[in-house]
């Protein structure tokens, strides 16, 4: 886990990591949230709606922002304050996602950073875009 202090972080700084979405992650997310929507849980239904298989929960993809801030940028001192997120393409089980965050702004008065986040699949397609406001605690 990274432990960047506010002073150590610079505008333009990047961090990234990869995650492959598994059946187990889908089952865990379903158990945590209670979202039993068939698009995420019933292959036949998902195929009938034009998808090659079950669609990964958008918020599961979105939950990787927590990892980005809490483990990578800034890491240990992270406190997420706000997230704006867009899901531009569906994600499917087995997709390998690359989550990348770039520090876009620093605000000294409150020791907070704005991180622009892009999540791409293994084909290089953007599946998610986000902006995250993260406090960097002492």
């Amino acid at each position: 886990m990274n432990e960047y202090t506010y002073e150590e972080i610079t505008v333009g700084q990047k961090e990234s990591f990869e995650v492959t979405v598994t059946d187990e992650m889908m089952a865990s997310f379903c158990a945590i949230t209670g979202d039993i929507n068939p698009l995420h849980n019933d292959s036949d239904y998902a195929v009938s709606k034009g998808h090659p298989g079950r669609v990964v929960y958008g918020m599961l993809t979105g939950s990787l922002l927590s990892t980005l801030a809490g483990v990578y940028l800034p890491g240990k001192r992270s406190l997420i304050q706000e997230v704006k997120i867009k899901f531009s393409k569906p994600v499917y089980i087995g997709d390998t996602l690359t989550v990348e965050g770039v520090v876009e702004e620093k605000h000294d008065s409150y020791s907070l950073i704005i991180i622009k986040v892009t999540i791409k699949n293994q084909k290089g397609e953007k599946v998610c875009r986000a902006r995250m406001q993260v406090g960097v605690e002492d």
Partner: peptide
């Protein structure tokens, strides 16, 4: 915080 940062910008 959002207000103050918005005004700074």
């Amino acid at each position: 915080i959002t207000l103050v940062v918005s005004m700074e910008k």
